[in-house]
Simulated assay, not measured.
Amino acid sequence: MRRWVISLGSAVLLLLLVGTACKTVGAGELGVMFRPFSGGVDLQRTYPEGFHWVAPWNSLIVYDVRLQEKEEAMDVLARNGLSIHMDVSIRFAPIPSELPLLHREIGPDYMNKIVLPQIRASARKVIGKYLPEELYSTKRDQIQEEIYHETDSILRTKHIHLDAVLIRSVKLPASIAEAIERKLRQEQEAMEYEFRIEKEKKEAERKRIEALGIKQFQDIVSAGLNPYLLRWKGIEATQALAASQNTKIVIIGNPKDGLPVILGTE
């Protein structure tokens, strides 16, 4: 009986050891080994997806290395001191090849320790150089790009890859937003007015060139006309009309050098 109890206890202990020694790394994850009795964090190796046997006194810390997204709301000051509320999305991931260093220097909570504080600091630094209307409309993409580069330059030294920074929304006090929209409408109307003026100038120039061409054509034609040519052309037309088989009415009494007028009755 005693042997049976000992055997059962040994089997249970063995199962417990096996259970604690078997660690699973899931899809899109990597593991970092910590060995308290042999050098601490293993900087030479990461553990891929699957089952891994780990000594009970060691620890396998699992990290999600897929792209992650975090939405962050923040209040920043523009160049003129106006407070602006922004909603920002950040996409990031740990650099897989540097995961052991990330674990040793920062730890699993790197998002709250590094990513979010740095994005806030970069946003405040960049937006402090611009006016509210520039962030609200004209230079939003440029500001977004500057925040990305400012943040990425720091996160890369912390073993974190920054994929994108996206400004989702910008909220200003209602009176300021209305003033900016009014200013933008006025600028748009001024640009439209300038466009109309320029269009009318081009149309006036076109008409001037057209009139000049017509005048030059008339001058050329007039230079080639004389009374003898006109009389001859009149004679030819009269002869052609007289040769027609239709009934005509002849009106005589034109000036001395004129031609009779022949009218057809049909």
Rank of each mutant, 00 (worst) to 15 (best):
R79V: 06
N112I: 10
A243V: 03
A211W: 00
P132A: 10
I251A: 06
L116H: 06
R231A: 04
L230E: 09
R3D: 09
R120P: 05
P94C: 01
S7V: 03
F51P: 11
P173R: 08
I252L: 01
A211F: 00
K215S: 15
L43Y: 10
E134V: 03
S89E: 14
S137C: 00
K158D: 11
I251M: 08
L101Y: 13
R182H: 05
R3A: 10
A242T: 15
L15R: 01
A164W: 03
V18C: 10
Q142D: 15
Y47I: 13
W4K: 15
Q188S: 12
K201N: 15
K70I: 00
S175K: 15
I6Y: 04
E105N: 15
V126N: 07
Y130A: 02
E49D: 00
S97L: 02
I143A: 05
L60E: 08
Y136K: 11
R140T: 04
A177Q: 13
R206H: 05
F92K: 10
L212K: 02
F217A: 15
R182I: 00
L155I: 03
Q216T: 06
W53S: 07
L16H: 10
G81F: 02
C22I: 07
R45K: 15
Q118T: 06
L43S: 03
A240K: 13
D257H: 02
